[in-house]
């Protein structure tokens, strides 16, 4: 690694730019290869980088790189403060709408297992549907006003519905040209450098997972979406993947997008697909 850096910098300083080929993580950003190949390349890349981390272990994020932190995590998980949000979500879930129906009526199996397929691409509306937007769609079908994204009730409902798939592996589907386009837009967002620090999501979560940024271990993209909504000590509350993305956007001095905007939904679609095969575990718990 070090030797490569020297070679690269010296090559750079003397104006030879051919050495760029060595940075193969960047090649993962090619948006022309389609979802199947993308998934294969990402899984292969991470397998080569971290041969000792099996796919299912990506569920624990940055803890996979620090066993000591992980045992603290396991202790904490026995008293996950996020469980309060989970039970608040369950209560809300069970309250009937004015028409007497419940959220459960909007989903197959009353919602059990559905989160493994979210987000999905809706061919009728030509848009990515997330757990969040599906909850509001369910409300409007039943004559209720939408909830504000990011509001405690919305987050609690997202947490509860997602938790009905706990222990089941993510199985996002991308099929057909329109879905593929949304996926590729999410991928492009993931690799686009932005903000005053000029970092892409991939600069941190693909190029440097396992590395320390000050005292934080950077997590790999694989598995991130499988534990959201998550409790975070830094938030002292449970919040969503998109809320976390907003934070990373701000951290590099970039303009965040509105929650459930097209950009964020496409991004979540792309990221979630990469976590296929990893078991859902919600609410997660992170420092």
């Amino acid at each position: 690694m070090k030797r490569w850096l020297i070679a690269l910098s010296i090559a750079g300083l003397t104006g030879i730019s051919g050495a760029a080929q060595a940075v193969n993580w960047w090649d993962l950003g090619n948006i022309k290869v389609g979802p199947d190949e993308t998934l294969k390349q990402f899984h292969e890349y991470f397998k080569q980088r971290f041969p000792n981390i099996p796919l299912e272990k990506y569920a624990i994020g940055s803890y996979a790189f620090n066993p000591e932190m992980y045992s603290q995590y396991q202790e904490a998980m026995q008293f996950n403060p996020g469980d309060l949000t989970l039970s608040a979500g369950q209560k809300l879930w069970d309250i009937p709408f004015k028409n007497g129906k419940t959220y459960a009526s909007c989903y197959p199996n009353g919602g059990k297992g559905v989160a493994t397929h979210y987000p999905y691409f809706d061919d009728k509306t030509k848009t990515v549907v997330t757990i969040g937007t599906s909850i509001n769609a369910c409300r409007s079908e039943n004559g209720e006003a939408p909830l504000k994204y990011g509001s405690p009730d919305m987050v609690a409902l997202q947490t509860y519905l997602t938790s009905l798939s706990n222990g089941m592996p993510m199985a996002i589907q991308v099929s057909g040209p329109a879905a593929t386009k949304a996926f590729e837009e999410g991928k492009a967002y993931y690799f686009m450098k932005r903000g005053q620090l000029n970092f892409s999501c991939a600069s941190c979560h693909v190029a440097y997972p396992g590395k320390y940024l000050r005292d934080q271990i950077i997590s790999p993209v694989l598995g991130e979406s499988a534990h959201f909504p998550s409790y975070r000590a830094a938030w002292s509350s449970v919040n969503t993947l998109q809320k976390r993305i907003e934070g990373c956007n701000k951290n590099v001095g970039a303009e965040p997008q509105p929650l459930e905007s097209v950009d964020y939904r496409n991004l979540e679609y792309f990221m979630s697909y990469l976590s296929n095969g990893i078991k859902i575990n919600v609410p997660g718990y992170r420092p």
Binding site: S9, G12, L13, S17, A20, W26, Q196, L197, N198, S203
Partner: peptide, 27 residues
């Protein structure tokens, strides 16, 4: 001077650099 130029805009010196561009982005 080359070191300053690197810190100011690492990507210009070698492509795919992952350092913030302290000069170019006015940090």
């Amino acid at each position: 001077e080359k070191l300053v130029a690197f810190l100011a805009d690492p990507e210009k010196m070698f492509p795919y650099a992952n350092m913030p561009e302290f000069g170019k982005n006015k940090v």
